[in-house]
Design a protein around this nucleic acid. Structure first.
Lengths: 216, 216
DNA sequence: CCTACCGATCGGTAGG
DNA sequence: CCTACCGATCGGTAGG
């Protein structure tokens, strides 16, 4: 009774559409997606593309969900076997920065948040939900680190989370806007200063990517 | 011979257009600008609007130039009477954060850089030029601070500039995306730690906006 | 600065 | 998943 092969093919087509849509949206933005362009590049008709989603807005939400799932697989999952607390946070950010660099495209969700901050609706809600989930993840690890003594008692966790975000955003901008290959090393250096406990190291021994290889 | 009043009126109309265009682009983006919407909101025809610029792209460049000029007046100029080095940098960032907060809209140029990073052309060139000018400004003040001993010898100025950018971007995101009124205080706290020389302060005494009022 | 108009493209639908 | 089509809107121009 169930047209099995057809269902599988439909799912595969949907995946093809979302892969291309995410790639396009990563470089040009989520609002710049057009059904017509997607269809042409996929060798499909517009109706064939939009039929999977109904509306462009639903497609955009699906693209955000795809990006979130990919982030989970690439970052959160790989950091799961690191020790909870500062070690896991360093590991997660190391993975994240490598992820940004791979496609030379920075973080899609970060850019999407900037693009949709003044466009209320389900797309923005999905993006903000992803940011909130990440914030919760960071907050939980920071609390673990405080409880275990890896961070000093009385540490202002809101400020620390803010500073970690700053390191991520500076890394993202350096990659996206300036194409700077040293960006991940810079970002990890900032993170190490924030999470390492010691005073800020300020010597010039930057440029060796050992710190990057460690986590990969 | 010269139609003086007409010339003045033309310039005033151009200013009206650019004011509204900058406001619109600040909230929804520089690419989302449309001649038709601008014209309708100004009570003009589309031809009347585009006649001042020729093409939409030229209008976008003019919007960027308007934003740069406004940034200069609001930030750089006001910081000019502070002592060169860390003091001037703190003052400039204090003004900048206040500027971001006034319109509850963050920094237009920061958002525009993110929007146009994958759209080569004169608009992106104008935006990157503005970022480069700011980087040069920061770099010069950091070198002054190093020479005067306000920063330790051997400080990695590239890393420090990167970290300052992180504080700015985190502040901008907190304002734009989350509407967080504590963002400027958080940003200044990060800056004080980076530029103040002392170890990172981590007590929880945040929330009093005195540090903000100082520069205003 | 206007009216009137151009071709192109947008998201989306009808019907199969 | 297709062809064929819809109304709306896009940037821009002609002519005044």
């Amino acid at each position: 009774m169930s047209p099995r092969k057809s269902v599988l093919e439909t799912a595969a087509t949907r995946t093809r559409i979302l892969d291309l849509a995410l790639e396009t949206a990563t470089s040009t933005g989520l609002e710049a997606l057009t059904i017509g362009t997607l269809a042409a590049e996929l060798g499909m008709s517009k109706a064939g593309v939009i039929g999977h989603f109904g509306t462009k807005e639903t497609l955009q939400v699906a693209v955000v969900e795809t990006a979130v799932e990919r982030f989970r697989q690439r970052v959160t999952t790989r950091a799961a076997d690191a020790a909870p607390g500062t070690e896991r946070l360093l590991r997660a950010h190391t993975e994240w920065f490598a992820f940004m660099t791979e496609k030379h495209a920075g973080c899609f969700l970060t850019a999407a948040a900037s693009e949709f901050d003044a466009r209320p609706g389900p797309v923005r809600d999905a993006i903000l939900g992803a940011l909130a989930a990440w914030s919760g993840y960071v907050r939980a690890e920071l609390e673990t680190a405080t409880a275990s003594g890896a961070l000093p008692r009385g540490t202002d966790l809101d400020q620390l989370a803010f500073d970690l975000t700053g390191a991520v955003l500076a890394t993202d901008q350096a990659i996206r806007v300036h194409g700077d290959p040293r960006a991940p090393a810079r970002g990890l250096r900032a993170l190490a200063r924030l999470l390492g406990g010691g005073p800020a190291p300020r010597s010039q021994d930057l440029g060796h990517p050992d710190v990057l290889d460690a986590g990969l």
